[in-house]
Amino acid sequence: MAQKLSKIDRIIAKYQADKSALIQMLLEIQRENRWLPPKALERLSQRLGIPTNQIYHIATFYKAFSLIPQGRHAVSVCLGTACHVRGAPRLLDRVTDALCIGPGETSTDMKFTLSTVNCLGCCALGPVMVVDGEYHGNPSGKEIKRVIAMCD
């Protein structure tokens, strides 16, 4: 844990313990851990002098943050308008079926987290599925299964 806290301290130091950079620090903690561990938030609260309730308000307000550990592989389906009219609901159904978890859920083996996103700005590709940062435009059922099978 001490080691983890020193990581948090490094992030705080990078932003000179500037309170107004709280959201930036949370983004970095989220990226390193794939979630925001309570210990990290406590540390931020102490070091920056920001009350815990304010930190939790921010941590539950923005979509980028999670207070629950996330799976090793992030799968998301874009629900932007262009994707919606090109069949995003059906794509989401298929991805849900393939992963056996619904949007916002993480598989018990911590392998996958499925999320939805409101427009990634890749409308020409739509409907879009993103797996660990790789974009897949209008994937077929077979393609979905292939991409998921490639995750270990």
Partner: peptide
């Protein structure tokens, strides 16, 4: 903070 779904000119 281009948030309108279906718009991506600012990103581009």
């Amino acid at each position: 903070d281009e948030g309108d779904p279906g718009a991506y000119m600012d990103r581009s």
